[in-house]
Amino acid sequence: MSLSPEQIRQVAQLARLQLNPEQVEPYARQLSNILEMVDRLSSVDTANVSPMAHPLDMVQRLRPDTISETDRRDDYQAIAPETQDGLYLVPKVIE
């Protein structure tokens, strides 16, 4: 499996990564090499094997739906790049 520069641009768009034009070709080559290494998996017979998402046999723990945290909005907003009146600011989304 090899990835073309065009495919790299598509994947970067899906991952919301802005690439410089000069990064595209090396990434295409390197990612193709990685996928070539990974392609070895395709020949393994896994017909009756169930996928393993996680090493532990465990069920999701539940807890009572009660308030356990204190309000620390100011602490969390203090490290944000841009806030106003307790809100996070982003560029205008709707004209």
Binding site: V38, L41, S42, V44, T46, V49, S50, P51, M52, A53
Partner: peptide, 15 residues
């Protein structure tokens, strides 16, 4: 399916 699911299955074989 070809990559992620297959890798999860091979992960089970390794385990």
């Amino acid at each position: 399916d070809a990559y992620y699911l297959q890798a999860q299955k091979v992960r089970r074989l390794i385990y």
